[in-house]
Design a protein around this nucleic acid. Structure first.
Length: 1122
RNA sequence: GCUCAAGUGGCGGAAUUGGUAGACGCGCUGGAUUCAAAAUCCAGUUCUUUCGGGAGUGUGGGUUCGAUUCCCACCUUGAGUACCA
């Protein structure tokens, strides 16, 4: 009976499903597992895409499955679940295109995934399956959101606490004593003041402390996708998915205060066994830098005028105004710009703090549309500046533009102060000295400060710029505003900036320090301002050189004539008053002490990590359990969860730009009935509008590992017993692309849940492995083209086989090198003269065209007929084949992708070679964490291994099952135990590839020994079972076992079987091995040395010379130095 | 630029504390079997060679009796990050 993988695999997959073989037990444990320790093996759950799985996807699942099966053999109660991260953009985009409900396509895709996964024979406990998009699951995602909303971060206890504790503090002490992680700008208030605040104001203040909060955030808006994207969803300024442009935009969004956990996320990395590169990228992403905040006083020498300074903000406002200007405004501007009025007007120009609609500076006249919110303040200011304002309305302009023009002209001819009612007298602002705050990691170099640089967007820029410099500054701001973020990033080399004319006072020397603006300073990091130390920072140095600013040297014995000196460890500070002679560490301490003493600065740790935006303008995501009352968000009571996703007509944003949920008609919250009701009932008394955004993709994946512990629990997130028993994931396998997304957010939520006492540990995964990517091996055919792609002279497309193409190129090279006539043998070789006589034109290029790898056999030969039928235009193509008539394709390694036609489907592999072959082969390809190319041709090696394995149990030519009960020989035992040791070690090191080799070696050796003894074969099949479980089950049952092999005891290694009496010593000369001699291991060093030197071969090597030295390492090697 | 990872036959890769470089498999070559093919089995397969040998793990140095492994410098590739003060 020969090995029939299809029959065996079907049989056992059915058996496992029917018997729930891999169901993990929750406490209390019973049966064989009564005292079993737990082991939790987890894969990153997949997003079920429409394309299904390709052979690259299961790599990590196979590795984790082997580990899980191994642990079962070792007596553990193994939890090895699987589920689906089933909310996401692709299903939604498909819905937009086809109108299909995302739930439906998701369901279908999951079915495909499940079918594909089942075929590979995974030992998943499917009874615990989760889907992030099912209401039973997202009920608890919503529940966690509520917990976050009801929490604040107390810096003193360094953990999240219930918001009620904060309210209690406010009532007794106000907010002065609280150290919380909260919004940057919260005014301080006393207990008395707190009590007097309205409920609404109190709620607004609390919102600034909550761990999830609403704020106007600059977000990455992707117009094409109609949604906001997280930083890690953007690659090179375009969306990761689809490559659409992304712009910055302000929106009111839910955010998660992950910044509260920055330090703990960093510290936690110490105690988890995750890959170093992954830890590094999290460390990098959190971006801790230690330094100090320092305030510089701006010198009031030249009090700048406010008028006409463009700030970043105003430029953007003006842009927006111009874009959105009303019909009337456009109409009027068309007339005014053509000077139909008597004077030249400018549109939307800045005057003081205001943007005028139209202004004439020389006539001191303003034309404004009436009805602006701040009309009174504006009028007041314009009047004090001596401007005449003419008010007009939209209607007037549209009805009769000529009368409007004459009204304007009249206003100018007969100046009169605009009518102002109840103008409050504007307070004259006291000119207090302004402070520029900077963050620096090198406060010890403060004596090297020779200028300061502000980001062009910095709010002080417009206030401090002097008259004289205003034009230059405005020009610079305008110029940088035009450049997109991308341009600025791409162009790091160019140094640009402008002097504001203002000076700051050096806090220690009292010297005047120039204040510049420059786009190398980012508004979004630190305070958006830097103290420039050109001698110690290369960017400051370059800037100083470029603008000819002096570069004081404050380092002892360091030459800074060529470049800044950025090394801090081995340099002492000089020219720095009280810091002179101090090394970095000491200088840091001293300066921070001095700064704090003077009250102008303090030591500070800054993090790059920003709070995470949590709102998405999408349909296919978790709805928020939130409704709005007077503009204040309210949580729906947890007992009414889940708040199910409503049905909508269309999945696109609404006409007026609301998220897709704005299309829902049943989307309002009735606080009396405690249910979702029709929007028509909204009265803002008992029925309120619900949140229209949905949660981002990472919401559901940030806690799913906890849900698996007790996935069917409808009462709780997971029971306390289950959480206490399973604790955390022992082994987590997934891709490294989640380093700064999922894996950071999940750690954040886990720490939060830990703070709240919901989960027992604050890191969810002890050990993590990143599996590498399996790349595809694309196949190419080469299209022969004429110069300039001109194919007009050809009746047919010509494809050239790979070796022939290489021949042609080589011939051409030769011909060109020796300047031979091109019409030579090589052309005859191909008989192409028949196709085209002008051979000159034939010497042109070959274009590689992707051919579907399905058309190519294991010898790289193309199925020409299949290829012809693939595309209409290939039907009549001509093929220049090899001499033997085959057509060879070119090969190249690329990412596996549909568009490259190099996708290999695991179903096809399972069909032809079997799941066991697929599993073995994927492991055999190379180290798990490394990326490696897939080549189907290689799989024959593991298949023939399986056949040999099968034969071992089916001795003789007849092929009947035949196992002997004889005692095993020493040699046979040695093979088995050598393999046990190797597999134990390999699995511990995740070197699955070398285990497969050792199986092959074992089977080869046992075959050579003609071993068919139960004593050996029973152990062997358990060893192999984690890797190739189907054949293992079959042979195990043939060996007479009634139960599944899944929990059979793993063979125990016995070193006694490996003890040797002799060693084949390598004899090397100057470190090079030349031959070997066998000696007993009992021999002493001296005896070995003597025997070696007497050996004939040694004498031949030495050719009469006397060796200088002989090194003998017993049991290892002999080295003769000559 | 910075951080990290990695460079070994035609290919995937092995060599766990420095001790026989190329395990295992693919591919290739030759042979057996077959009417033939597939499958299977056997032998060979780093390069070079005057068949004695000699060289060889990205490059150049170093430490050592001995280096793919340790140290220094450089080159190349891949990943992450990007004016982070």
């Amino acid at each position: 009976m020969s090995y029939n993988h299809l029959e065996i695999e079907n049989k056992w997959q059915k058996y496992w499903a029917d018997n729930q073989t891999f169901k993990a037990q929750n406490p209390p444990l019973s049966g064989a597992l009564k005292d079993a320790p737990k082991f939790y093996v987890l894969d990153m759950f997949p997003y079920p895409s429409g394309a299904g799985l390709h052979v690259g996807h299961p790599l990590g699942y196979i590795a984790s499955d082997i580990y899980a099966r191994y642990k079962r053999h070792k007596g553990f109660n193994v939890l090895h679940p699987q589920g689906y991260d089933s909310f996401g953009l692709p299903a939604e985009q498909y819905a937009i295109q086809t109108g299909q409900h995302p739930a439906k396509t998701t369901e279908e895709n999951i079915k495909t995934y499940r079918r594909q996964l089942d075929r590979i024979g995974f030992s998943f406990d499917w009874s615990r399956e989760v889907r992030t998009s099912s209401p039973e699951y997202y009920k608890w995602t919503q529940w966690i959101f509520i917990q976050l909303f009801n929490s604040w971060y107390n810096k003193d206890s360094d953990k999240a606490e219930d918001i009620s504790t904060l309210e209690a503090i406010f009532t007794t002490d106000g907010n002065k004593k609280v150290t919380a992680v909260c919004d940057d700008e919260i005014a301080s208030f006393t207990a008395a003041a707190w009590k007097k605040f309205s409920k609404k104001k109190q709620q607004k203040i609390l919102l600034q402390y909550r761990l999830t909060f609403l704020s106007d955030t600059e977000v990455n808006w992707c117009r094409a996708l109609g949604t906001v994207l997280a930083n890690d969803e953007i690659v090179n300024g375009v969306s990761e998915r689809g490559g659409h442009p992304v712009v910055r935009k302000k929106m009111t969004q839910w955010s998660m205060r992950i910044s509260a956990y920055a330090q703990r996320l960093l510290d936690g990395l110490q105690k988890i066994d995750w890959p170093q590169p992954l830890k590094d990228s999290q460390t990098n992403w959190i971006g801790r830098s230690q330094g100090a905040m320092v305030s510089f006083k701006v010198l009031p020498n030249e009090v700048p005028e406010k008028k006409g300074i463009l700030s970043y903000k105003t430029i953007e406002e003006i842009k927006a105004l111009r874009l959105n200007s009303s019909k009337a405004s456009k109409l009027l501007w068309d007339v005014l710009r053509k000077k139909k009025g008597s004077v030249k007007f400018r549109q939307q120009y800045v005057l003081g703090d205001f943007i005028t609609d139209f202004v004439s500076f020389n006539k001191k006249a303003i034309v404004e549309f009436s009805g602006k919110e701040d009309e009174i303040e504006r009028a007041n200011y314009f009047a004090t500046e001596g401007y005449t304002v003419t008010y007009i309305s939209d209607k007037e302009v549209i009805d009769n533009i000529n009368s409007v023009i004459s009204k304007i002209n009249n206003g100018i001819q007969f100046p009169k102060i605009a009518e102002i009612q109840k103008v409050p007298k504007k307070k004259i602002k006291k000119e207090t000295s302004k402070l520029i705050e900077v963050f620096t990691t090198r406060p010890d170099t403060i004596f090297g400060v020779s200028f300061m640089t502000l980001a062009p967007e910095h709010e002080l820029v417009s206030q401090i710029t002097t008259d004289k410099q205003r034009k230059a500054v405005n020009n610079y701001i305008t110029a940088t505003a035009k450049r997109s973020e991308r341009d600025r990033m791409a162009d790091v080399k160019t140094i640009s900036g402008a002097f504001t004319g203002a000076y700051a006072e050096h806090p220690f020397t009292g010297k005047k320090v120039q204040i510049w603006i420059g786009d190398y300073v980012l508004a979004s990091y630190g305070t958006g301002a830097v103290m420039a130390v050109p001698c110690g920072d290369q960017r400051d140095y370059d800037f100083a050189k470029h603008f000819d600013i002096n570069i004081p040297n404050i380092f002892e014995g360091v030459d800074i004539s060529e470049a800044a000196h950025e090394d801090k460890n081995e340099t002492k500070i000089a020219n720095s008053d009280f810091l002179n002679g101090l090394a970095y560490k000491k200088a840091m301490k001293t300066i921070i002490y001095e700064l704090e003493k003077k009250g102008i600065g303090y030591g500070k740790i800054n993090y790059r990590l920003r709070d995470a935006v949590f709102s998405r303008q999408r349909y296919w995501g978790e709805p928020f359990p939130v409704y709005y009352k007077n503009g204040i968000p309210q949580m729906i009571d947890a007992k009414h969860l889940p708040i199910a996703l409503p049905e909508v007509e269309k999945y696109l944003p609404t006409e007026d730009g609301k998220p897709p949920l704005g299309n829902a008609t049943e989307w309002a919250w009735d606080v009396k009935a405690n249910k979702v009701v029709s929007n028509a009932k909204i009265d803002n008394k008992t029925v309120f509008t619900l949140e229209l955004n949905t949660m981002p993709g990472w919401a559901g994946s940030s806690w799913y590992f906890n849900r698996y512990m007790d996935s069917q629990n409808s009462e709780e997130f997971a029971s306390k017993e289950a959480l206490d028993y399973w604790q955390d994931v022992d082994l987590y396998i997934g891709g490294s692309e989640h380093a700064t997304g999922h894996l950071l957010y999940a750690r954040f939520w886990q720490k939060f849940l830990f703070d709240k006492g919901i989960v027992p540990v604050d890191e969810f995964a002890k050990k993590l492995i990143n599996q590498g990517m399996i790349t595809g091996t694309s196949a190419f055919v080469y299209r022969w083209e004429f110069k300039n792609g001109d194919t007009s002279g050809l009746k047919k497309l010509i494809f050239v086989s790979k070796t022939q193409m290489e021949n042609i190129i080589e011939e051409r090279q030769k011909a060109e090198n020796s300047k031979h006539n091109l019409d030579n043998d090589s052309i005859d070789l191909l008989a192409i003269t028949k196709i085209k006589s002008d051979s000159e034109n034939m010497w042109s290029h070959f274009t590689p065209i992707h051919a579907d790898v399905a058309f190519v056999n294991t010898s790289d030969e193309l199925d020409i007929e299949a290829f012809k039928n693939w595309r209409e235009e290939y039907k009549n193509a001509q093929f220049i084949t090899e001499d033997d008539g085959s057509f060879k394709v070119g090969r190249e390694v690329e990412k596996m992708s549909k568009s490259k036609y190099n996708v290999v489907n695991p179903d096809a592999i399972c069909e032809e070679y079997g799941a066991d072959s697929l599993r073995l082969f994927e492991m055999f390809l190379g180290p798990l964490e490394q990326s490696k190319p897939w080549k189907t041709s290689g799989i024959s090696g593991v298949l023939s291994f399986l056949k040999k394995l099968w034969k071992l149990y089916h001795g003789g030519e007849e092929g009947v099952f035949l196992v002997s009960e004889e005692k095993a020989t020493k040699e046979e035992l040695k093979t088995l135990h050598k393999t046990i040791k190797k597999v134990d070690d390999d699995i511990a090191n995740f070197s699955f590839n070398t285990s497969v080799s050792s199986f092959m070696i074992a089977v080869n050796e046992l075959t050579a020994l003609k071993c068919n003894k139960r004593e050996i074969l029973e152990g062997l099949i358990v060893l192999i079972s984690p890797y190739a479980p189907h054949i293992a089950e079959e042979l195990w049952s043939k060996l007479g076992n009634k139960d599944s092999i899944a929990t059979a005891e793993f063979p125990v290694f016995d070193a006694n079987h490996l003890v040797e009496s002799t060693k084949n010593y390598p004899i090397s000369f100057n470190g090079k091995m030349r031959f070997t001699i066998e000696f007993s291991l009992d021999l002493s060093k001296e005896e070995i040395e003597k025997a070696v030197l007497e050996n004939e071969k040694t004498k031949a090597q030495l050719q009469g010379r006397t060796p200088k030295k002989v090194i003998v390492v017993p049991g290892k090697i002999v080295n003769i130095v000559g």
